[in-house]
């Protein structure tokens, strides 16, 4: 049949092993003796943006945090199940947590630049890894800042305090800080909730551009944002994965009544 519009969306059941970036198998998480995630299984595709949506407290941030084991840093926890990234179960006993975290970037709700220069902020992760070669650091910082679409704005003031940047610039700096380590997966926890609408759009555009380099997983309260940027979307409710599909179908024809109620704003 004649096709007017190109649609490349694979259905979520069809991902091959090569196309999968994060493979979550029967993940259960309890924080402070309270069950937060219940038997989540989800395959997140490579080089796509996957959005996790749901109400506050539904466990989407916990799910995001379990991809780089940040839950362990935050509170007492109990985790069962497996999360496979790059053919490695990150909950394996032999896994070194700090190395894992350096390979999975994370951007938080509020920009949290360290009180150092812009340069030191971006090179922080590399220096923690023991990288000392000045030229290598210079190149990495420039590359990361270019990738985060910040280079042109800060090239003349790399050694000024990062706190002098505006909110949107700071958030892009945070993305650059994560990108400097060349992560395979970039986790974004409501990255634009503290920003104005226009800056939000710029960050979203940046996310779309970053698809070339890594897999992006974004938690957002903003349904519009999830609809705008994501290729795939997962709706989580009370610790359960209710629906997971490509966002074109999720936002036009959800399969589950619960999802429809949530995205249309009918939730009680």
């Amino acid at each position: 049949m004649f096709k007017l519009f190109e649609r490349e969306a694979l259905s979520v059941e069809e991902f091959s092993k090569e196309q999968t970036s994060v493979d979550v198998r029967h993940l259960c998480v309890s924080l402070n003796a309270k069950k937060v995630l219940n038997d989540i299984s989800i395959r997140i595709p490579k080089n796509k943006i996957t959005a996790l949506i749901g109400q506050s407290g539904c466990g989407k941030t916990t799910l995001l945090n379990s991809f780089n084991r940040m839950n362990e840093f935050i509170s007492t926890h109990e985790i069962s199940g497996e999360v496979w990234i790059d053919n490695r179960n990150i909950y394996d006993k032999r896994e070194r947590v700090s190395r894992l975290r350096s390979q999975i970037g994370m951007v938080f709700q509020r920009p949290n630049p360290f009180p150092m220069s812009i340069y030191d902020n971006v090179s922080f992760g590399l220096r923690i890894q023991g990288e000392k070669r000045r030229r290598f650091l210079d190149d990495s910082v420039e590359k990361a800042l270019r990738n985060a679409a910040l280079w042109d704005e800060v090239r003349d003031r790399l050694f000024e305090s990062a706190l002098t940047l505006s909110g949107g610039q700071q958030q892009r700096l945070m993305i650059a800080r994560a990108l400097a380590l060349e992560p395979k997966v970039l986790l974004l926890d409501e990255p634009t909730s503290a920003l104005d609408p226009l800056t939000t759009l710029y960050i979203e555009e940046l996310m779309v551009a970053l698809k070339q380099q890594c897999t992006l997983i974004i938690v957002t309260h903003n349904m519009q944002q999830a609809a705008r940027v994501s290729d795939y979307a997962a709706f989580i409710h009370k610790g359960e994965l209710i629906e997971y599909s490509d966002s074109d179908s999720l936002f036009t024809m959800p399969n589950k009544q619960q999802t429809e109620d949530y995205i249309t704003g009918r939730y009680g």
């Binding site: 700090s98 992760g125 923690i128």
Partner: peptide, 27 residues
């Protein structure tokens, strides 16, 4: 010291000791 700075450093692969020495103590 805001806790999100600690989590920021931790998420970049810093250990707890490195976080305290490089981020928390100066602040």
């Amino acid at each position: 010291v805001p806790s999100n700075l600690r989590s920021g450093a931790i998420a970049l692969g810093a250990t707890k000791y490195e976080t305290i020495v490089k981020v928390v103590l100066p602040m």
